[in-house]
Design a protein around this nucleic acid. Structure first.
Lengths: 194, 194
DNA sequence: ATTTTTTCTTAATCTAGTTCAATGTATATA
DNA sequence: TATATACATTGAACTAGATTAAGAAAAAAT
């Protein structure tokens, strides 16, 4: 990603110069993953915080019976990574894999610490990023406990139309907290109704 | 709350002097609510960010059929408030009420802006607060989609034993995404098993 | 191009959790 | 001390969504 592009994106939240955008970028490295490649395996240490450039990262939890439950889809300019693992150097509770061929910018914990130290305005940047993520998570919790699967599916489509095109349906079902079979049923129901 | 106590609490995340703690406190006012009093009504503007001193604040969403769904319980030294309403001056999606007689420190949006401006280390403080809250919300989403109601109830008890003592069971049921009747059934099942 | 693997659909059966309605029990307030 | 009000329990009937198993379709890989 070019410094100009980064600057433009970050300016949604903080006012930074082109030089600062370059300094920011210099702390990252670009990595690429093929479709379905695992980026972080649960139980391993998550050593980077990721910014998705292209493609999609899916974060998921694997339960005691081996079932996968999707926590997050991250597309262009979304952040991803296991925060407790990254921050406290503990094994990651989640796995992360690429959906479609994916290009990432990754920053290590030492470089993130350096970023906060050398460019304190990034405390503000991430304060806003986390605050917005928190608000989105609050909304999702309420949707999960207050609405039916069909309503959640419609709200999801509305909110993340790009994601629906990129991601296999079984993962969308998992994100919604239902089985792929039941999502299939919902979709039929909806198409019959129209 | 005394400046010393505040200093001690904030020092979990940032290094602040007693003077800074006093400056911080000066931006807040203390308010008290009786048990069951509504602090913020959904549809109204949430004009403050709240720090619970004593008692408990419950944030909840009221759906189209008038059912209440609990988003958060906040006890001593937890933050609460409707962030989108506070930040973007839009009507609040949630209501907030006191559970038990409750004492709060509240800061207005203008004072919060001033705090960030005059004491930039509070960007860091809230970055960490929101980051931790985000992690907790991620965990809750996974628990909701990956575990049964009984498992969620046991995990809740484990994680928030103080809350279980303070809060009526029907609200805990709501937090867990189940009906009070079913929580009652779960509790009977558990006590029979022991 | 063909084969293998992954993803999606359909249908029958089953179950965790809901709904409804009644009864019981604390806890406030007069 | 009585009386209202909020809260908790129980059980019977019901339903949204899970499970299992099979086949169809699409996408990768050879």
């Amino acid at each position: 990603m070019s410094p100009e592009e980064i600057q433009k994106n970050l300016r949604r939240y903080i006012n930074i110069s082109l030089e600062e955008a370059e300094q920011f970028l210099s702390l990252f490295e670009t990595v690429r993953y093929k479709n379905r490649k695992v980026v972080v395996e649960s139980g391993d240490y998550c050593r980077y915080f990721f910014l998705v450039e292209e493609g999609c990262l899916m974060t998921y939890y694997t339960d005691g019976n081996g079932f996968e439950h999707v926590l997050q889809f991250a597309t262009h300019m979304w952040w991803s990574g296991d925060l407790p693992s990254l921050m406290n150097n503990v094994p990651s509770a989640y796995s992360i894999k690429a959906i479609g061929d994916t290009s990432l910018l990754q920053i290590s914990k030492p470089n993130l610490d350096r970023l906060y130290r050398e460019l304190p305005k990034f405390e503000r940047y991430y304060r806003i990023i986390f605050q917005n993520a928190l608000v989105a998570h609050q909304r999702r919790i309420i949707q999960n406990i207050a609405y039916t699967a069909e309503e959640r599916y419609l709200q999801f489509r509305e909110a993340y139309p790009q994601v629906e095109l990129l991601v296999p349906q079984k993962y969308i079902a998992s994100y919604l907290g239902i089985t792929p079979e039941f999502l299939s049923k919902i979709r039929r129901r909806l198409s019959n109704r129209k």
